[in-house]
Nucleic acid binder design. Structure first.
Lengths: 319, 319
DNA sequence: TTGAAAGCGCTAACAT
DNA sequence: ATGTTAGCGCTTTCAA
């Protein structure tokens, strides 16, 4: 393996001069710089990142730690983060599970964006205390160097359901995500509260898991039920899509017999029949803004406040 | 920041003893080991990965470099890779674009899995020459420490179309992906060859981009055409789904008026109407096998041959 | 403008 | 079983 020592030797300069040249320091003359770069090219030399990171006590890497690699939300947020980090010259390192914790604790990243319910608060807070900024999505978490950004789940769900109550719907059902998920919990709170505020004192509740398949199973159940709700709010779009598919396969008409809405505005929602009414969050842009904030923090600038990204109601055919 | 020096001091042992204890070496007595681990815990000490990696000349990280974060294929492959790497104690580092190249060249990973058309052969071959194993997916590439795994695109497409010719279909169309993509190129070769072998000397050709939206646009065009093909083979499932949606919206019956098939077997294919005939590759398992092979190589064992992962024909309603 | 040398935090060979 | 120490490859202070 070629090191900077080899480059320096071939160029006939000292190691420090070689280093300056490679890092484009103004301290070195144009002529020696060229000599060094030529030698580096000739040797196919690339600096060893581990050595550089150790010496500089920073890596230029931003960790993005997600719960799993599947899912349209992750994809969009990641693309947004990636776009911004690339513009600013940072490396994006996406990981999951045990790896996330390793990379964090071993300080192979300068900052972390957390999109993973399963990483424990303690580990994150500790990393923050060490001086590394941590941005947590879909979770409330306070502490030194800790930042969080959460969708206004309750308000957005309340607004959607209120419209539908105003439009005359009387009986409602909720199709949940995983019961311990932050988003599901808060969407359900919004759902329950708005019904209560309107004097609707009961609703049906179905347990799902945020997947198409989970929604499909619940859809079959509802299709066979004698007490079909007029309106089913699904905790996310994917389960709504599965639900709609099941209902249609049993000849339940949507929205005539049962109206459906979801949450997330995944792109697929435009390509099903009927098209899906939902609540839209611009995940790509969210990712960009989170990345922008993290970079500002690393530069000791004041980050833009994005603790509560906006969402919007998207009226389509399914309700 | 706490270092191993602090731990050693607090535990009242030398630095090397502390290191041995932390790394669970049998050289150190149980009693001192406990003492050291206690001190480490008390100080909230975690080893600095950059220092360790520099010293050991290996990182325990495997880089997985993908073209973009969107897409069901990437997700499934990544989940498979992640599963296996986690089992074996390696960290997964997923990256894209410029970051991929940086991480590779700076040797912040011990090996790389490449799922990205845009990374140039030269960079990869060079990394291989340096002694790092590189596994390339969906691309043919030879060289020192280079391994590749490509779907049998041609054979699988030929087999599917042959069935449909045997079933009586006479006029065929091809909906492409990006023209310079490896998969699209080889799927189209298979398509053309099997038609030729059966004496079918022309076919319609539509240019797509592997997205739902791209397929949708082409679908609208075909719906308005007077010369609808009996059978449209789409270079991937996503474009097939967009195509079907457009055709249905124009009251073209599938498969009666036009039959459709795709490639990939993404899970969504079961949840559209009609369900999608396709060619299935088990991407999750593919990811697992690639990860397994890379690990074997790192351990200087002989990797299992997975240069041509299997696929299977999946007959559903759309054709 | 260049060079010598210290040291980032760790592992491991060697000495005790 | 434990301690001393060299050195991984780099950056950067300090001296020339």
């Amino acid at each position: 393996m070629k090191t900077i020592k080899d480059v320096a030797a071939l160029a006939g300069v000292s190691i420090s001069t070689a280093s300056y040249a490679i890092n484009n320091s103004p301290k070195v003359s144009t002529k020696t710089k060229e000599k060094v770069l030529l030698a580096a090219r000739e040797l196919n030399y690339y600096p060893n990142g581990n050595a550089r990171n150790l010496k500089k006590q920073r890596t230029g890497n931003i960790g993005v730690f997600i719960y799993e690699f599947a899912g349209p939300i992750f994809s969009d947020v990641l693309d947004g983060i990636h776009k911004k980090l690339q513009e600013e010259g940072y490396n994006i390192i996406v990981s999951s599970g045990k790896s996330s914790l390793n990379l964090l604790q071993e300080r192979q990243v300068d900052a972390a964006i957390i999109f993973d319910d399963s990483l424990e608060n303690d580990s994150l807070v500790h990393f923050g205390k060490l001086g590394y900024p941590v941005y947590v999505l879909d979770r409330d978490l306070k502490g030194e160097n800790m930042y969080s950004s959460v969708i206004n789940n309750e308000g957005l769900v309340k607004a959607l359901i209120q419209r539908k109550i105003d439009a005359g719907y009387k009986t409602f059902a909720y199709l949940s995500g995983p019961v311990d998920s932050y988003n599901n919990t808060h969407r359900y709170i919004g759902f329950k509260n708005v019904l209560q505020e309107n004097g609707i004192d009961k609703h049906q509740y179905f347990e799902g898991d945020f997947t198409i398949h989970g929604g499909y199973e619940v859809g079959l159940k509802i299709a066979n039920s004698n007490e079909k709700p007029e309106f089913i709010f699904c905790a996310n779009d994917e389960s709504a899509i599965g639900l709609i598919h099941a209902l249609k396969s049993k000849n339940v008409r949507i929205p005539k017999d049962v109206a459906v809405a979801g949450f997330d505005n995944i792109s697929l929602g435009k390509y099903i029949n009927p098209t899906l009414t939902t609540i839209g969050v611009d995940h790509y842009n969210w990712g960009k803004e989170v990345a922008e904030a993290i970079i500002a923090i690393l530069k000791h600038e004041k980050p833009k406040d994005i603790s509560h990204p906006d969402g919007e109601f998207i009226q389509r055919e399914s309700s």
